[in-house]
Amino acid sequence: MPDFTVSDSTIPDPTVLSRNTKLSDQYRPVFSIFYALLVRDFHVYFRHRGAWLNPLTFIFMVILLFTLGIGPNATTLTANAAGIIWVVALLGIMLSLDALFRADYDDGSLEQLLLSPEPLYLPVMAKVLAHWVVTGLPIVVASPLFSLMLGISGKAIPALALGLLLGSGVLSFLGAIAASLTVSLRSGGLLIALLILPMYVPVIIFGSQFVQSAIEGWPLTATLSMLVALLIGSAVLAPLAIIGGLRMSIDG
C-alpha cells in the first residue's frame, strides 16, 4: 500500500514562517501541483494514442473532403488554402475539447482538484497546456504537410506554422471555457461549438491573414502582434472563466 500522507516538509506551515524560511517556499505547493498535473496528464494522454492521433486524422480527412468539394484545380486550391487549413485546425481542436475535463469529472479527480486550498489558476493552466501539447502542437508540426497538399508556396510554410503555434493556443484557452461549462452535461460536443465558434472569429481572421500576407509578401508584424496579443490575453484571462465554469459544474 503506497503512502499517500503528505509529509510535513512539503507544505510549510504559514504560521511558523521563521526568519530563515524563504518567501519562495510559500509558493512551492502551487508549482508542485502544476508540475504534478502536467506530468500526470502527459502520462494519461500518451497512453491513449487516440488523444493526439484522432484530431490529426480528422484534419487530414477534412482537407481531403475540401479538396474533393472545391475541385483539383491547383490555383483555386492555393487561393483558399490558408482559410481551409485554419478552419480545419480550429474544428480539430474544438472537437477534441470535450475530452479536456470529462475523464477527470467522471472519476472525481476534478472535484478533488477543486477542493484543494491552493489557487486553481496554475492547475487549470497545466490542464490546458497538457491538452494543447497533445492536440494543438501536432497540428503545428503537421502543418507543412497540409501546406504541401494544398500547394502553399514554400516561403509561407514557416508563417503558417508560426501562426498556428500562436493561434492554436488561443483556440485551446477559449475552448476550455466552453468545455468547463459543459462538462457536467451528458453531451457537450455541439453545445461547445455553439458557445465558442463566435469567439473564434478574431483568431481565424488574423491567423489566415497572417498566412495570406506571407504568401503575398506583405509585412507580417501587424498580424503577428495581433496573434501574440490574443494569445497573451486569452492565457491571462481565460483561466479565470475556466475556474468559474469548473466550480459551476461541480457545485451545480
Binding site: I177, L181, T182, L195, P198, M199, A241, G244, G245, M248
Partner: peptide
C-alpha cells in the same frame, strides 16, 4: 451560472 459566465466572456 453557466450563462452568466459565458455572457461575461462574450
Amino acid at each position: 451560472r453557466a450563462a452568466a459566465i459565458i455572457a461575461l466572456v462574450g
